[in-house]
Design a protein around this nucleic acid. Sequence first.
DNA 1: ATGGTCGGCAACCGA
Length: 260
Amino acid sequence: MGKAFKLATFNCNSVRSRMHIIGPWLSRHRPDALCLQETKAKTEDFPELLFSELGYNVACCGLSGHAGVAIVSPHKIGKVSFGLVSEPHDEDRLVEAVVEGVTIVNTYVPQGREVEDEWFAYKLEWFKRLGRHFDEKYTPRKRLAWVGDFNVAPEQRDVYAPEKLLDHVDFHPEARAALGRLRNWGFVDVFRVHNDEAGQYSYYDYRAKDPIGKGTGWRVDHIYATKSLANKSTAAYIDLEPRRAEKPSDHTFVIAEFEL
DNA sequence: ATGGTCGGCAACCGA
């Protein structure tokens, strides 16, 4: 029997306005690492004290009121670094660190706006540059977790209407192919090791009415792991609590458990 | 079929 390791990810859409969800959730679930995206707080404005009161250390980067990423952990957060190795670094979209011997890369992949928009090209390029980032820093044999808001639903069963969403930047064939190339670098979708069903979503648009009831969701938040780490996973699941909470969030928690 | 809601930040833009 190894050492239990619980890893979670949450696009919080402003960490400061989501502490009513994050605080109690950390106390109840006590993950070994929680990766946050869209913290929407400059580094100096991150509510680090609220996390330290819960016994959590913080590694975060925010450059403005948009994007922003963080890793929080009750353990030592080692070898912290921000941004892609190539320019533009986008330090507020990638934080990586080592926690309990596991290397964690937490990304908030650019959403891309519209397929015709130059930002969609930027998104595809971002995946390519992330591939080079992995090439330069790691090997697929390493115990590595890549987690976060990838802004891509990989498969048909990961969106509510695959036929009609092909032109959406989060389900466009080119976006899925870009993610697929990275998966082929050496990652396993840990959620799919433990769950086969369609309709397991990590994101529901604020603007839709009764999206959970209607099932109009997307699975765009992911926990990927190299084989050596994925082999040690014992469970993976989505926790819808943030979407059901008072003052809800549009994304949910995605959690994976390991026995290291 | 279009528009729907949030958060940051103080007018809209981005998701």
